[in-house]
């Protein structure tokens, strides 16, 4: 309960801050709270404007993150997409998506793990978590 209040207070203050501030402060990655909660913050800051708040993406341009093998199946491939970006033909449910995704190597292992955990457990997705150790391994193998 306390946690919920804390989260909503944080979200509210974030909302007001981003509305009023001309220049937004660089947000530090929160180390408290669950992976999924921290992941949502990463998602909101980095992924949302292309993949949309509901993960549905944009027709023809940005692929959806809902109920697709790209998100649900192989964690290694999914981590690689975040690290290296994506510039390949992708077809999901008969639709193709043409925009290029830029690499996000600059994110920390923990941030990538959190955001992928959030994506794999949101928008109706029900898949396992991604850990920072898994991200570290994929990054090192490259």
């Amino acid at each position: 309960m306390k946690l919920k209040i804390a989260i909503s207070a944080f979200a509210l203050s974030f909302l007001f801050f981003s509305l009023s501030a001309q220049v937004r402060p660089v947000k530090k990655h929160r180390s408290t709270g669950s992976s999924i909660v921290r992941g949502k913050i990463v998602y909101t800051n980095i992924c949302l404007s292309c993949h949309m708040a509901n993960g549905a993406g944009v027709p023809h341009l940005n692929p959806p993150l809902i109920n697709t093998d790209y998100v649900l199946r192989n964690k290694t491939n999914l981590i690689k997409i975040v690290l290296n970006g994506f510039n390949e033909d992708v077809e999901i449910n008969g639709q193709t998506y043409s925009n290029t995704m830029t690499p996000h190597k600059d994110l920390k292992d923990r941030q990538i793990a959190d955001v992928l955990t959030y994506v794999r457990k949101s928008f109706g997705n029900k898949a396992s978590s991604v850990t920072a150790a898994e991200v570290k391994k994929v990054r090192a193998a490259k």
Partner: peptide, 10 residues
Amino acid sequence: HDLYPSLYTT
């Protein structure tokens, strides 16, 4: 904003 959060608000 996504690329330059310190220069541009949403």
